[in-house]
């Protein structure tokens, strides 16, 4: 039993590498911050493309649906490899794009931001869609019969209501995105898991990796509780008859 504890919870190793792992974890959070903002925006953009009305937008709607389906189907890890292992060698692109070092961040950081945004944009588009479709049709009819255009109707009437219906599923996607920032370790972004694995390779001890996991736990657990709270709150609203559940 003590062997087990030594392997996973060696406080000497945890202590010795704590600040290093924490620094790595802050890089996870930085990656998350970029990816979450971009995928929320990109997801909304995709969801809105998908809602464009009429026959003339059919091709665009089709492309959007195809994009969403494809990127929901491909593992994130493969997308990350396709980007980090391919983009640098596309010599027709300018060097700043092939090997980006914007804002003082290394290129793996940007590959990860792009890859996570491409995939999570597709996930989030589906969550937005659930929200948009849950807004009663009468809202759209009312706005349209007041003469508002499709765009005005979406912007001022549908989307503001849709986003209040989906905080719980949206937060779930965010939690999952936060955890998947660890995938950036395999494309050499030195976040907490990568640093933990280096310790593992040197010492044959998993405590540093465990430490990285514990840091996620500390951040994610309260968020998971928040999701539960939001779902519950939404249900109370339903019993009051004023909102629709889509979680």
């Amino acid at each position: 039993m003590s062997e087990f504890f030594h392997q996973y919870f060696d406080f000497n190793i945890m202590g010795a590498h704590f600040s290093e792992i924490l620094e790595g974890f802050l890089r996870n959070l930085l990656l998350f911050a970029f990816a979450v903002v971009l995928s929320l925006a990109f997801g909304l953009f995709l969801a809105l493309l998908r809602q464009l009305p009429g026959r003339k937008f059919m091709p665009l709607r089709g492309l959007t649906i195809a994009y969403i389906d494809v990127f929901r189907a491909i593992p994130v890890l493969i997308v990350l490899f396709l980007i980090s292992g391919g983009i640098p060698y596309l010599n027709f692109l300018p060097k700043d794009i092939r090997i980006p070092h914007w804002l003082g961040q290394p290129d793996p950081f940007w590959y990860a931001v792009v890859g996570l945004t491409m995939v999570y944009g597709a996930y989030m588009a589906e969550v937005y869609r659930a929200g948009i479709e849950a807004v009663p049709a009468g809202q759209r009819e009312a706005a349209r019969s007041l003469g508002m255009s499709h765009g005005q109707t979406m912007r001022h009437v549908v989307v503001p209501q849709a986003v209040t219906l989906i905080p719980a599923p949206m937060l779930n996607e965010m939690i999952s995105l936060l955890k998947e920032t660890t995938l950036a370790s395999v494309i050499a972004y030195s976040e907490s898991l990568l640093l933990g694995r280096e310790v593992l390779a040197e010492t044959f001890n998993s405590s540093a990796v465990m430490l990285s996991g514990l840091m996620f736990l500390v951040v994610v657990l309260p968020l998971a509780r928040l999701v539960d709270y939001l779902i519950k709150r939404n249900q109370t609203k339903i019993t009051r008859g004023s909102h629709i559940e889509v979680a």
Binding site: P136, E141, A142, L146, G147, M148
Partner: peptide, 23 residues
């Protein structure tokens, strides 16, 4: 409409001003 279809995220006043301003 039968079901009113007021915009629930807007006040009574905003329900009446929205389309005036936008349209």
């Amino acid at each position: 409409f039968q079901q009113f279809n007021l915009f629930p995220h807007k006040t009574a006043l905003q329900n009446v001003t929205l389309a005036q301003e936008r349209v």
